[in-house]
Write a protein that binds this DNA or RNA. Structure first.
Lengths: 340, 340
DNA sequence: ATTATAACCCAAAACGTTTCGGATGTCAAG
DNA sequence: CTTGACATCCGAAACGTTTTGGGTTATAAT
């Protein structure tokens, strides 16, 4: 059915070797033969069997991504943007992106074992790192090329791209405090996640810097979704002394917070200030528009993609650790000063 | 470095054949040998080389998705949800999802050629179909198993899952007309896209059914993004007689429309009704909440996933064409009746 | 006339697995 | 003692490619 080198060889009366070499422009085949081979290959609709090529070359030209069960969903816009950047970048190098989903939480490592040891992948993208990440431990241990989108707290040396969440959150608190807010609440994800850890650090330092006490009851943990934000805000707003500003771990959560605030009949930006993190497209078109911390998602994705290809080729990275400076984007959701 | 069957064979003093058969629980190997083999395989950290398995079995256990250049972005929530459903479903069957990006518009078909003919894929998911889709033509012609998320206008027989866009849009117009609106505008994507075609059909029939004239100047084409919706709405609202209701091809566009309306100082749901299509999570938490047509994205993804696996195994589908009934979800953005 | 050089070609091995078609040995039935 | 059945094992081929290490022929240099 499908045509192979052998078929071409038979057709042009040459050996398989010669056909292969002709197609690869080796200089020990005559130009007539080369032309002939190439022409008939085209005519017969030949396409190389990549599986065979890979077996022979011991390379896969594929970078893998294993979606953790409790990680970001494919429908998370910020994550989607990062991923699009990665996909685009590696595509231009002829690499593919292989996405597997871990079936169960514990399955995470087993999935790695199977896919990675099975040599399907040349390098791996690790997303949403945890403070002490088993996956990274495993990959380091197996000597498998990988790049992480995020850091860990352990003192391990591995390539990553991350945004300086602490600094970003610090700037947020700074901004909100300058507007006169004193009761600033924070809706976060699981503190096991490294980026949450750093955001908390930035939050606490920012509060201290503004000479505000950090009230632990104002820090609530929630799902990193709109629904999570909505619920978290409901809890916060039901306190006897509700916060006047609510900061969220990401924009999705912040959008949920805005909904909750508005459903309580309060006005975002006047009664309650709301701040997000990520700067997803939606942040610019919500109402009111959302003050947030900008992350260059697509660009980070591209950098990740380049690094993934480099490590797949066994190159050592000139700049293995990239920490991106975030920038505060002030919009309407923190719009008005308070008069206190 | 990595351990192969041969290594195990040497270790346990058996042939490669026997080791392979032992690991696969063939009944012509003694239980002692089987145990021995399995134990040493585990001890040595053996994992089969999938590439070799694939070459031998002529299967890839992979379904492919080639992202068209002008298709939905990975960051489109509705698309992400569908994709998540697909990924989840095929993962439970041990399949992987391979995502490639087409480098250039024209490259679309070439990408198919290379990846598909190169036997990397057992089946292919085609998204965002066009009225006369070259990709589907190609896949049919090559006899390559695939499933489409969307229909075509040609009378070809192939498996697809789609939502009845015409019926959905018909219901939208019906609803808006019942509220008293007469100048109903429509912001669509390219009419080359099949779903836009059907939406237009439903729109026109709905208008006719409500005895309203269809004013072609009220139908504007835009990018299927928030930005596109924003711009489209600006154009419509600058007309001397602006519409009182704006219907959009999807929720993203509708959210952009809402922004534009609000930026003009108008109130969505009172001054201008806005309707979307898809029912992304955001539609429920936007302000005002968005009236839209619900699509069971994740469920459609699962069905697609099951079909993709079936066709990959060469099975004939019991129900190759699935047309899902959409349902109108009435929320605040069409909130108030008009008094005309 | 011999030798060196260049131009062109190819057989065979290798990548790691699965499977077909025996081969060998043992034991019970005839 | 032979035959057949059974249990256990294995060699070799196959999947399609790339690469190694040649071989053959014709031409140029000695």
């Amino acid at each position: 059915m499908t045509v192979t080198l052998k078929d071409i060889a038979r057709q042009v009366n040459r050996s398989v070797t010669t056909v292969s070499r002709a197609l690869h422009d080796y200089d020990d085949v005559s130009s007539e033969t080369r032309e002939l081979v190439k022409r008939t290959a085209l005519e017969m609709g030949y396409a190389p069997n990549v599986v065979a090529q890979r077996l022979q070359k011991q390379r896969a030209d594929t970078v893998g991504l294993i979606l953790p069960v409790f990680g970001p969903r494919l429908s998370d816009p910020h994550f989607g943007d990062v991923l699009a950047g990665v996909a685009e970048e590696i595509a231009s190098a002829g690499f593919d992106l292989l996405i597997s989903m871990a079936d169960s939480p514990s399955d995470g490592l087993d999935a790695y074992r199977q896919k990675i040891v099975g040599r399907r992948l040349d390098s791996v993208l690790v997303i949403r790192t945890q403070r002490h990440d088993q996956r990274i431990r495993f990959l380091l241990h197996r000597n498998m090329p990988f790049v992480a989108n995020g850091r860990v707290l352990d003192d391990w040396d591995f390539p990553y791209v991350d945004v300086d969440h602490a600094k970003g959150m610090w700037a947020v608190v700074q901004h909100v405090a300058e507007l006169g807010h004193q009761r600033i609440a924070f809706i976060t994800g699981s503190p096991q996640l490294t980026f949450v850890h750093y955001q908390l650090e930035g939050f606490r330092q920012g509060m201290a810097n503004a000479s505000l006490p950090t009230d632990e009851s104002q820090i609530v943990e929630a799902d990193l979704t709109q629904r999570g934000g909505y619920k978290g805000a409901q809890i916060l707003l039901s306190h006897t002394i509700p916060p006047t500003a609510i900061v969220a771990s990401n924009d999705l959560v912040a959008l949920g917070v805005m909904s909750a605030v508005q459903d309580q009949g309060l006005e975002v930006g006047r009664d309650v200030a709301v701040v997000g993190f990520d700067d997803i497209p939606m942040a610019d078109t919500s109402h009111p528009t959302l003050t947030t911390v900008h992350q260059p998602a697509a660009h980070m994705g591209q950098v990740l993609g380049q690094m993934l290809i480099s490590v797949a080729w066994g190159k050592t990275l000139t700049r293995p650790q990239v920490l991106v400076e975030p920038s505060l984007v002030i919009r309407q959701s923190t719009g008005l000063d308070l008069w206190l």
